[in-house]
Every structure is written in structure tokens, then in C-alpha cells.
């Protein structure tokens, strides 16, 4: 009897070991391509980064040299503008969802946000092209930023919603008992308690939108020069990576790697910052 149990147990521990080993193998398999991508970006990107990459405009086709200064600023402009549009609206909507969580309206809004978050970004680009670019008769930075804002909006709203809901109701009730009004509670209690999380969520949403390329193809288009106003087309790192990758020039491939490195660096910094924001209050 005892021997049987022992045998069964050793069989189970063996299975457990095998499972652990299998999961380690899975991690190893997953890490190979993923690390390969990061290493390629780091190695080739660093090799191609130079001062002129950050300070100069692209050279004419086929001439090597030149840089992506306008694309770097273009990406920052697009994402900055998109944040200005997407974040305040997203946070307001998210707070509303969290504070009135059971009404019919919030159910519809929450559902819309979930659906919108899943709409392929190319479709958002097409819609902005058809509604804004064709009407304004111009590819423009503004149109590109609008497309990105549409992608950002549901992310910010749902994160705020989720996080505001994690604020214990006891806090709200305490504030109500003290006679605070609803907006005071929303802003001073809910927003403050969930603040770091929401800030981190916004950073992650910004990071995600930083890499969106497809919606910019028909909206922000591209520009060889600095864009002179928000009504002009603009270059962006994302679109430049795409065009340079598809070109036959080795120098452009090198610059595409450099641009990828810069873009990944922006995304990583935003991600790390988001984590820091979260750790901050804990450490204090």
C-alpha cells in the first residue's frame, strides 16, 4: 500500500518536473525570436545612429546620408496632439463609467469602448481619410493625430474605468457622509486614489499609439521636409521605417533600424516610466 502510494507520488513529482521543464522550454522558445528582434534592433540601430540622424532631413532618394529629424519631431507631434485629444476625454469618460456603473448608458459606452479598442487601426485610418482628409482636401498632421486619438480613447477610458472601480466604495461613502458632492468625490477621492494607476495607464496607451503605422498612411502621409503647420502632411518614424524597409538602399535599411531603435526606446521609456509611477507611492 505504502509502496504503491510512493510510486504514485513519485510518478506525480516526475510529471511535475516534466511540466516545469516544459514551461521553461516554452519560455526559451518564446525568447529566441523576441530577443533576436530586440538584439537586431539594438545592434543594427546603434550601428546606424549618428548625430546627423537626429539633426538632418532625409537626403534625396538613393543618396546616402541624411537623417530623420523631421520624422522624430513628427512622431512626437502626432502622439502629443493625440494625447491632448484622447487623454482628457478618455479620463472623463472613464470616471463617468466608474461612478455610474450600472446605468444603461454606461453599459452601452463600455461596450462601445471595448469594440472600438478592437477595431483594426487601418480601418480607423480609412475612416479619418474619408471624413477628414477628403473634406479638408489635405493630408495633415491633425488628421493623423485624430486617428491616433481615436485609437487611444477607448484604452484610456477603460483603464480609468477599471482603476476607478478598484477604489473602495468605503472611501466614497465616507466622503459622501462628510457631505462632499459627487464631483468632489470623483476628483478628490477617486481620481486621487487611482491617480498613479491612471497616469501609468495613460503612458501605456501613449506607448501603444506611438507605434501605430497603418492609420497614418492615409492621414498624416509623409513629408520630406519639416511640416510647416499642423495642416501639412508630416513625416513620422513609423511611416519612415515602413518606406525605408521596402526600399532597395542599404543606407535606408540602416536608417530604418536606427529609427526602429529610437521608436522602441520611446516605447520602453514610457513603459518603464509607467512602472515607476506605480512603484512610487508604494516605496514612499
Amino acid at each position: 500500500m505504502r509502496a504503491e502510494l510512493d510510486a504514485a507520488y513519485s510518478g506525480r513529482t516526475l510529471a511535475a518536473r516534466a511540466a516545469t521543464a516544459a514551461s521553461c522550454v516554452a519560455v526559451a522558445i518564446a525568447m529566441v525570436p523576441l530577443l533576436a528582434i530586440l538584439l537586431y534592433v539594438a545592434q543594427r540601430g546603434l550601428g546606424a545612429l549618428s548625430w546627423s540622424f537626429f539633426t538632418r532631413l532625409p537626403n534625396p532618394v538613393g543618396e546616402s546620408g541624411g537623417g530623420m529629424a523631421n520624422a522624430i519631431v513628427g512622431t512626437l507631434e502626432l502622439v502629443g496632439l493625440a494625447s491632448l485629444m484622447g487623454i482628457p476625454v478618455g479620463i472623463a469618460a472613464g470616471l463617468f463609467l466608474a461612478e455610474y456603473r450600472t446605468t444603461m448608458l454606461t453599459r452601452v459606452v463600455r461596450f462601445s469602448a471595448d469594440v472600438l479598442a478592437g477595431v483594426p487601426s487601418i480601418i480607423v485610418g480609412v475612416v479619418v481619410y474619408a471624413t477628414v482628409v477628403v473634406r479638408m482636401q489635405h493630408f495633415s498632421t491633425l488628421a493623423g493625430a485624430l486617428a491616433l486619438a481615436v485609437l487611444m480613447l477607448p484604452l484610456v477610458a477603460r483603464t480609468t474605468d477599471e482603476l476607478a472601480r478598484t477604489v473602495p466604495d468605503s472611501l466614497r461613502e465616507a466622503a459622501l457622509a462628510l457631505g462632499a458632492s459627487r464631483w468632489r468625490i470623483a476628483i478628490h477621492v477617486v481620481l486621487r486614489t487611482a491617480g498613479p494607476g491612471i497616469r501609468a495607464g495613460c503612458m501605456l496607451a501613449v506607448a501603444r499609439v506611438c507605434g501605430e503605422t497603418a492609420p497614418l498612411l492615409f492621414t498624416a502621409f509623409n513629408n520630406r521636409f519639416w511640416n510647416e503647420s499642423l495642416g501639412d502632411p508630416t513625416s513620422s518614424l513609423q511611416v519612415q521605417i515602413f518606406t525605408y524597409t521596402m526600399s532597395p538602399y542599404d543606407d535606408w535599411h540602416a536608417q530604418a533600424w536606427a529609427a526602429a531603435l529610437v521608436l522602441v526606446a520611446i516605447v520602453v521609456v514610457l513603459n518603464l516610466a509607467a512602472r515607476r509611477v506605480l512603484r512610487g507611492p508604494k516605496a514612499a
Binding site: 533576436a36 537586431y40 534592433v41 507605434g211 521605417i241 526602429a260 521608436l263 516605447v267
Partner: peptide, 11 residues
């Protein structure tokens, strides 16, 4: 999960 699709495409 946060690396942009276009970078995957480049690779």
C-alpha cells in the same frame, strides 16, 4: 507586447 508592429515587420 509593446514593440510596434512595423518594427516586427522590419525584422
Amino acid at each position: 507586447a509593446a514593440v510596434p508592429g512595423v518594427v516586427y515587420g522590419l525584422w
